[in-house]
Amino acid sequence: MGGRRFGAIFWVALAMLAVAGAARAEDNIWAALVLATNEHPAKAAPKEIAPYVRGLRPVFGFNTFYLLGEKTQNLREGVGAWIVPSKVVFLKVRCLDRDATSYTVQLDLFVRKKLVVTSKVKLARGAPLYIRGPAWGKGRLVFILEVR
């Protein structure tokens, strides 16, 4: 009876460790391509990017934000991934390292298949990165990246 109890505890503990490891390996990076413009009156942002508007407005000086595309990509160390919410601008993300609270990634921003900028960024969970992209019409394209 006691042996069976110990055995059950052992297998449950092992399963919990496995689940914890799997859960830790399933962090994702969420990327959104946003068109920032000035409109009168200003329009409300879609719910996907509404939490970021407070940060976007003062930095980029626009009052209206449209979500053009978004993608969620699994983050695995050493694995590169294309985040392509648009045919014109897209990002290549490669996870270089990770610790308990953040990921270090290499970002390559392409505009019309031309590499515009290469950057090494430490992305903390829940702390977004805003990338100022090319101008589009009277507005500006902005990338939002966040580890979730």
Binding site: P58, V89, A127, R132, G133, P134, A135, W136, L141
Partner: peptide
Amino acid sequence: YAFAAPGGKGAVLWVTDAGYIPANERIK
């Protein structure tokens, strides 16, 4: 260049002269 985003947790990567896309060009 880079600086901290308002609120302190986020960051901004500011790319100057990243290009111009005409308004009549489809982005999506």
